[in-house]
Amino acid sequence: MSENDLHRVGTDAARLAGEDGGFPAQEQEPPGLTAAMEPRPDHGEESYRGNGRLAGLRALITGGDSGIGRAVAIAYAREGADVALSYLPDEQADAEDTAAWVERAGRRAVLVPGDIRDEETARTVVRDAVAGLGGLDVLVNNAGAQWARRENGIADVTTEQMDAIVKVNLYALFWITQEALPHLGRGSSIINCASIQAYDPSVSLIDYASTKAAITNITVNLAQELGERGIRVNAVAPGPIWTPLQPATKGADSMPAFGGDTPLGRAGQPSEVAGAFVFLASPEEASYVSAAVLGVTGGKPVF
């Protein structure tokens, strides 16, 4: 990507953000869809240019239909990887859009819908992805759930909400990783999606933030265990990123200021996160990188 291209990507992301760093007031019901968002997120559809860094690799991306997952899928495809997308059946329209972008890059897209809060479904997602791709080299545990429409902090956290969040963010990560490991070999990688919430938690996201802190611990733990097998395990910790998860789980009045408290003064776009996932998946560029957590936070510290 040339200097002019880099300038354009940053300028476009800033243009999409509003005066206070966020976006117009809006709200959806979970799980949220891309088409209803204003403005539409930038997933790198027009800006990401691949360089063959993942040529011939096969990747499973959970939560791959929209947001960060879609941006990663587009980037991986343009870097030469075939991609399987895990998503909820209600997100079929978004998943098909993402698959179309993968196929436009000349790569194979495998759709594996299912609610991964259920153990057998989560494991079946991996089996179907492996069957469709003919193997597996990269696992991206990106799927996440949160709920922030709360006024009284922990007093408003219900067992039902917490159960759903922990199952998506932690249980499914365990089940999917366990099922994927027999298919991963030397040079393969696992990339987990953590969050700035692990380091700078919001009061309304106490349960979500707790799971993201756990994911950073799991990442380091797995890196120690799998290093001798030549499998690298890392994480990306995004800051406030404009994805359907935001209007689908937060109040409409929080959107205009969303991301405005970062040092860069705005929320990020999914396209601005994808490069970190590409780097960590690259068997050449990140061959000696494991147990790392890369922050893409708009300037908020990750340590």
Score class of each variant (00 low, 15 high):
238 P>Q: 00
252 A>R: 14
223 A>D: 03
261 D>E: 13
255 M>R: 10
237 A>K: 00
226 L>P: 13
239 G>F: 06
221 N>A: 15
256 P>G: 11
221 N>G: 14
253 D>Y: 13
266 R>P: 05
257 A>N: 14
247 P>V: 13
236 V>T: 07
251 G>T: 15
236 V>I: 07
251 G>E: 07
255 M>H: 09
221 N>W: 14
234 N>D: 11
244 P>M: 05
252 A>G: 08
265 G>Q: 08
237 A>P: 13
256 P>W: 15
268 G>Q: 07
239 G>Q: 04
261 D>G: 15
238 P>K: 02
229 R>H: 06
256 P>N: 13
240 P>E: 10
228 E>P: 03
250 K>D: 06
240 P>T: 12
225 E>A: 11
222 L>E: 06
228 E>H: 08
236 V>N: 00
222 L>T: 02
253 D>M: 12
231 I>H: 00
242 W>F: 12
239 G>M: 08
226 L>E: 07
247 P>K: 04
248 A>D: 01
269 Q>Y: 03
230 G>H: 01
259 G>R: 10
243 T>W: 10
239 G>D: 11
264 L>S: 07
228 E>K: 14
220 V>S: 15
253 D>L: 14
259 G>H: 07
245 L>I: 15
255 M>Q: 14
229 R>M: 00
227 G>Q: 03
245 L>T: 15
221 N>D: 12
246 Q>C: 04
228 E>A: 06
228 E>M: 01
256 P>V: 12
229 R>C: 01
250 K>Q: 15
250 K>P: 00
245 L>G: 02
268 G>N: 03
240 P>Y: 01
240 P>D: 14
237 A>C: 05
256 P>Q: 08
228 E>C: 08
225 E>Y: 13
234 N>Y: 01
229 R>F: 05
226 L>T: 09
231 I>M: 01
263 P>I: 09
229 R>L: 04
230 G>L: 12
224 Q>A: 12
247 P>N: 04
221 N>S: 15
228 E>S: 11
220 V>R: 14
256 P>C: 09
252 A>Y: 05
245 L>H: 07
257 A>G: 15
256 P>M: 14
263 P>N: 15
243 T>Q: 08
266 R>K: 09
232 R>W: 01
223 A>K: 03
223 A>G: 13
247 P>D: 09
260 G>S: 04
225 E>R: 14
243 T>P: 14
238 P>T: 02
248 A>Q: 06
256 P>K: 11
244 P>G: 11
250 K>F: 05
254 S>M: 05
259 G>F: 04
222 L>H: 07
225 E>W: 07
269 Q>R: 05
245 L>R: 02
265 G>P: 12
239 G>Y: 00
227 G>A: 13
231 I>R: 00
234 N>A: 04
258 F>W: 14
259 G>W: 10
232 R>K: 07
254 S>L: 12
264 L>I: 13
249 T>I: 09
247 P>R: 03
237 A>H: 06
228 E>D: 11
265 G>F: 06
251 G>F: 08
242 W>D: 02
244 P>K: 12
240 P>A: 02
260 G>V: 02
226 L>A: 00
248 A>V: 04
269 Q>A: 05
250 K>V: 13
250 K>M: 13
268 G>H: 00
267 A>V: 02
221 N>H: 14
261 D>Y: 12
259 G>S: 08
232 R>D: 01
236 V>F: 00
259 G>D: 03
269 Q>C: 05
252 A>N: 04
226 L>W: 12
257 A>I: 10
